[in-house]
Nucleic acid binder design. Structure first.
Length: 442
RNA sequence: GGGCCCUUCGUCUAUCGGUUAGGACCCCAGAUUUUCAAUCUGGUAAGAGGGGUUCGACUCCCCUAGGGCCUACCA
């Protein structure tokens, strides 16, 4: 049974193979990971994607056919002999050619053996790649690749070729690491007189240090972006922009991306993954996101992080959300930015604020408290008006009451503008915090 | 070692023979200011190197250098 999977567009003819399987996982788990990723990214074909397994055993008939046609042969080299031949070929800077390629199997043909492809010694194999253009491979540099292992199991290059043909795959779009495999696969297609599918080899995404993406770089699977507090639309937008572009457009919708996309615009060189830019794009999508949706996502992110919010804090965060989402780069920033609202009385004041609580300071704060008490309605607008009216009445600048008020309300934690901070706290909590400060011993 | 791919600001990219080489992120400065952000304005910053072809090259060709992929009885 093969390890790789296919997705088939419902009723369509587009087949998608998930080529790189994780051998540590079972097939069912691998399918689940793919499903989860697609679901989180909100990527769907028309309707639900349907996965189906390749037809087992197709390759066996193909190998028999290949042998009959003289394109494959049984190779009786032992594993050690094979290793030695490989080393020798490499030392001489040439491709491996099996000594069995021209020998006729004798009576004892059932001895342990592998089946290899009889790669032509001359000529070249040409791939018309959708993103690379014409790529030529001299046949003399291609090994007599193994088709069937000693235990009869098909190798990757044989299996995908048979599967793709069997399932009518028309386009093979995959990572650049498979470019040279395209030549090996093309050899089999040609030997079987099958039509070649369209190949398109995309550049790889590298880590921020330029090395191949790995666990060290933070994100290997889509789910990790979710856990780090990224919005699916932001990830989609960023990823689409990596290795592809449409003029100067940076922020665009899925519909626009779909309308604009053309393989010919895919970049040829590998791109580095840049979290700074992902953050900027994520910040943009957080800013324009619906508050209720954002709240649900943030709560979910906190739970995943293992720091779920308590009932009362949830209410407080929701109230502060519209005010703090402007500055958030990820969902995980939200609770941090709303930290001032999540504190509980009595607040521990920072030194600067404590120093500002002089007799004069307290007196002024007291007058402001009286002005705020009973304000109806308690909204950002009315609060803003009240604050402006207060400084005008006192004949002072904001600088003479702002820092003190903020310090008293937040204990020194950064917060939005004062009117917003007061609103997020709500009347009772805000006045309570002011009272705590006023009753503080000098 | 061999084959193949790639090479524009630090990063993602635009340009597709004639541009002051553009945009975005990052960074810096200024503005704003009641903190931190955010926001606004402005700025620094690039065609790997060398040969050609051409009136003219980032754009086409060759070489070199650097990076990547493959070179498995892995996928």
């Amino acid at each position: 049974m093969f390890n790789w999977l296919y997705a088939r567009h419902c009723g369509g003819q587009f087949l998608l193979r998930i080529e790189d399987t994780d051998r540590a996982r079972s097939t069912e788990e691998a399918v689940q990971v793919i499903f989860d990723s697609l679901e989180w990214l909100e990527l769907k074909w028309d309707g639900a994607p349907v996965f189906q397994f390749a037809r087992a055993g197709v390759h066996q008939g193909v190998v028999r056919e290949l042998i009959d046609r003289g394109w494959a042969f049984r190779c009786y080299m032992s594993a050690e002999e094979s290793e030695a031949a490989k080393a020798e070929a490499r030392a001489e800077g040439r491709a491996l050619r099996s000594p069995w390629r021209d020998r006729t199997p004798e009576a004892g043909a059932d001895l342990p053996h592998v089946v290899r492809f009889k790669t032509p010694t001359g000529g070249e194999t040409v791939i018309e790649d959708l993103v690379r253009g014409t790529v030529r491979f001299p046949n003399k540099d291609l090994d007599d690749l193994i088709l069937l292992r000693t235990d009869g199991a098909p190798t990757y290059n044989l299996a995908v070729t048979c599967d793709d043909h069997d399932m009518g795959v028309t386009h093979v779009i995959r990572g650049e690491e498979h470019l040279s495999n395209a030549a090996r696969q093309a050899l089999i297609y040609q030997a079987m007189d099958w039509d070649l599918p369209q190949f398109g080899h995309l550049p790889l995404i590298m880590g921020e240090d330029g090395a191949k993406l790995s666990k060290r770089h933070g994100a290997q699977s889509v789910g990790e972006f979710r856990d780090m507090g990224y919005l699916p639309e932001a990830v989609r937008n960023y990823l689409a922009r990596l290795g592809w572009g449409h003029g100067d457009d940076e922020i665009f919708s899925d519909q626009q991306a779909i309308a604009w996309f053309d393989v010919k615009d895919v970049t040829k060189s590998p791109a580095r993954f840049d979290f700074a830019k992902l953050n900027a794009i994520n910040a943009h999508y957080i800013r324009i996101a619906d508050d209720d949706r954002l709240m649900a996502l943030a709560l979910d992110a906190m739970v995943r992080k293992g720091e779920p919010l308590a009932g009362e804090d949830e209410v407080r965060l929701r109230r502060a959300l519209p005010l703090v989402k402007e500055g958030a780069k990820t969902l995980l920033d939200l609770p941090a930015l709303a930290g001032f609202a999540l504190k509980h009385r009595p607040l521990k004041l920072d030194d600067k604020t404590a120093a500002r609580l002089s007799p004069d300071g307290k007196a002024r704060l007291q007058r402001l408290r009286e002005r705020l008490d009973g304000l109806e309605p308690w909204s950002a607008e009315t609060l803003d008006g009240a604050l402006r009216g207060f400084v005008a009445e006192e004949g002072i600048g904001f600088g003479e009451i702002g820092p003190l008020l903020r310090g008293v309300l937040t204990g020194g934690t950064p917060s939005p503008d004062l009117a917003g901070t007061l609103f997020a706290l709500q009347c009772e909590e805000a006045l309570g915090r002011i009272d705590d400060a006023l009753s503080r011993p000098a």
